[in-house]
Amino acid sequence: MNFFRLVADLMHLASIFILLLKIQKTRSCAGISFKTQLLYAIVFVTRYLDLFTTWISLYNTIMKIFFIASSVYILYLMKYKFRATYDPILDTFRIEFLLAGSLVLALIFNYDFVPMEILWSFSIFLESVAILPQLFMLSRTGEAETITTHYIFALGGYRALYLCNWLWRYIFDGHVDVYAWVAGIVQTALYSDFFYIYYTKVLHGKKFELP
């Protein structure tokens, strides 16, 4: 564990609490893409299957259980409790392509051709593009609630810090994980426009609006 990874994980954790706060405070999931949330639930379930096979640490186990449980809980909130506030008309990104593309990539690029490893690769590739429906929704509405932008920022920042973590681990431990690196770079790059607007608008006290 190094500084970057710890802060990244805490940021990831924070993003989920911010999302829960947004939904509970405004009693609405308006502006949140159900499809992105669904993809994250799939990402966590397929990646953390090793909960049953490999013990890493108590920290690791608790975080994994939290990520799976919270993602399923958010799906429940969006699908049932606050269903009336969700606007499917704005959430029209075709996730079939993301799922199929990630699966194909996982079948080609994996550390071992066994179901667990293929699903791990699948989750890494799917995570890298899982934010697309959310960003697409944002581009359609052209604006967002400030708390929603904090959520997206924390979610994007977490993987950006993982890039620092991977550089750190490579330098000091010789740790190499090419698939996670490439996916992490793609994931962070997808946020670049968002980061720019977040920095120039939200952090200067203005509303998040697309130019």
Binding site: R47, F67, Y111, E117
Partner: peptide, 10 residues
């Protein structure tokens, strides 16, 4: 294979 990585990250 011997290129298996232990996935110790989240």
């Amino acid at each position: 294979g011997d290129c298996i990585i232990i996935h110790d990250e989240l």
